[in-house]
Nucleic acid binder design. Structure first.
Lengths: 336, 336
DNA sequence: AATATAAATGAAAAGCTTTTCATAAAAATA
DNA sequence: TATTTTTATGAAAAGCTTTTCATTTATATT
């Protein structure tokens, strides 16, 4: 039978108040009493009921992370940063996998609300107006990780995607490439996909490189399959290309696989640069040059912000931008 | 301000009992009252407090999954099966990432206990005696997914690893291979790694294939890096090998990458068969032939078992074995 | 019309904790 | 020694729900 604070109190011949104090403010209880109570707690294997605790404290010491796709290493590494910070500060984290489904996400938000989690970290995905309405209605703070919102005042931490897109393209240009394609996301995603494309285009423009949006860019999902099929249609439209910027590592991997199948040598014939620097980048052949997002930091910082919000009610910096960095590996080379 | 059942009761001019009934047994309340109360609930955006509910119902409608490594696609797909079943039956699932750390896992078990989750699904990893002691002390049921325990009576669902190892080896033998290596896990893992190795050896023996444990097998972690370095040492020890059984897809991918770097053609010179059939198997070049575990079913079945335990206190079948299957792709070929 | 039955509602207890306020005992101060 | 302060403890309330039991009202039965 599960034991309660009452059982401990009875066996230790003290009131439940004292037992509670042993757990929460041991400095207020006499040495002997303390030891006796601790002994009984141990003996009874007593664990305080977090439901009752939460009910009265109005704090559950729990934060939730909403992620759209658990099988994306991107989120995996982000979550790690969140967990690390949360655990340091005594919070538990609940991971909620929304499977890219709005319904699931709304359902999750409801139960998280009912379960009285202290705060929520929302990852990736742009914030649509109806999401914001839901967030507003929530009694707990929300922080965005690897996404942000320009219209709404939600704290966020992410990289500067426009600049990252620019740097990726410039990197290829510096290697002498002039026929550069891009495998990007859907431009309805104005927070990630669009800025990367814009940065990419700005770099080409800046360096006077010819560019035709129709011919040079393929839009699609971030997944391997999309990279594969995207690369296929890209080489068809743009057979002279010598380099491609795939704006996720998974897409890059799909692209590489397609090129392998076509016996195109990488990087000798076509250079490929990815985005994210997930574990996948090292699992490629050749190893993937990529724009690294500091995924762990993004998670860690987001959790930090959430904690600030929880403790102070406000956040030092509303929108934090963390630096990206190009990691040079073996999938890119100087044009010959 | 968050509203409670009292607020609803006051505004609707009914007792809290009636409000509670509207939520739980609406058939017991008069039409007009029902509508009025529902209206107020909507108006006030009232959501019942799950803590209070759990406290009185002694059920939180929550199950937890303990996984050792979130960045392993294996678990990702397993979790999906669990989520699907759990959601169907009205349970929420909490994903707990133990990072392969025993301390973290024990810490998680403590908080899950305190948080009064209804049940726990423990994935992979063998069950060590001290784990079992902890499980026993837990007031909620535990089910094992993709692992099992022969000593302890914990319900489990997994594939038959010995048979799977046998089939993998036999598949290679049928393709004419006689110089077959294996990239396996540590044999201290008696629940997964050892049986696969045993099955592998049994197949060689059965078919009269020469075999030297020292020379033909490399043990190591399941990760890409381990596959990479494992393959390296394997070809050094065993230069005549024409096929390798890597007992995880990630390991297989590491092996393939190493072979690529050495300009060894796959499958022409060396055939590679993996294990798990995670998404990674399709992200390889060449696409990976592998022993598929029905990851989704394993998760789904494990959740089903947990639910049986929760509802009936017992389980139909203690240890369920689900079928594996060899998925033939492009990384294996008949020996020439 | 009188009685029995069914339907609708509410008051209060229970679930497990923390916290406030009060009290008793011990220690410090005058 | 008498008084104040400090230390240690407990009783009871509060947090939000569900459930039991009782009561009132409406409906069905004779």
């Amino acid at each position: 039978m599960k034991s309660t604070i009452k059982d401990v109190a009875r066996l230790a011949n003290v009131s439940i108040t004292t037992v509670s104090r042993v757990l929460n403010t041991p400095e207020l209880v006499a040495r002997d009493t303390l030891n006796e109570v601790l002994k009984v707690i141990e003996e009874l294997q007593y664990h305080p009921n977090a439901l009752a605790r939460g009910l009265i404290n109005k704090r559950t010491q729990t934060v939730a992370v909403l992620i759209p796709d658990l099988s994306n290493l991107f989120f995996t590494e982000l979550v790690r940063g969140i967990e690390d910070k949360a655990n340091e500060s005594g919070y538990n984290v609940i991971i909620c996998n929304t499977h890219n489904s709005k319904d699931r996400m709304i359902a999750y938000l409801r139960v998280l609300n009912e379960k009285q989690v202290d705060g929520i970290i929302f990852t990736s995905e742009p914030i649509y107006p109806d999401y914001y309405d839901i967030f507003r209605a929530l009694p707990m703070p929300v922080v965005l990780a690897a996404t942000h919102s320009l219209e709404y005042d939600l704290p966020s931490v992410k990289v500067n995607d426009e600049k990252a897109g620019f740097d990726a393209a410039e990197y290829l240009i510096r290697l002498g490439h002039r026929n550069i394609g891009m495998l990007g996301g859907s431009v309805v995603d104005q927070v990630t996909a669009l800025p990367r494309l814009q940065g990419f285009m700005r770099a080409l423009r800046t360096h006077g490189v010819d560019f035709d949006l129709e011919r040079c860019v393929v839009h699609g999902g971030y997944r391997f399959e999309h990279g594969y099929s995207g690369m296929k249609s890209l080489v068809n439209k743009f057979p002279t290309l010598t380099a491609v910027f795939a704006s996720s590592d998974e897409r890059a991997m799909g692209a590489i696989t397609y090129l392998h199948e076509q016996s195109v040598r990488i990087p000798e014939e076509i250079s490929v640069i990815g985005f994210d620097n997930t574990r996948l980048a090292e699992m490629c052949y050749p190893k993937l040059t990529t724009v690294a997002q500091p995924l762990h930091s993004i998670g860690y910082e987001a959790a930090t912000k959430l904690e600030q919000l929880l403790n102070n009610g406000s956040v030092e910096e509303m929108r934090t931008y963390v630096p990206h960095q190009i990691i040079e590996r073996e999938s890119t080379a100087r044009v010959t």
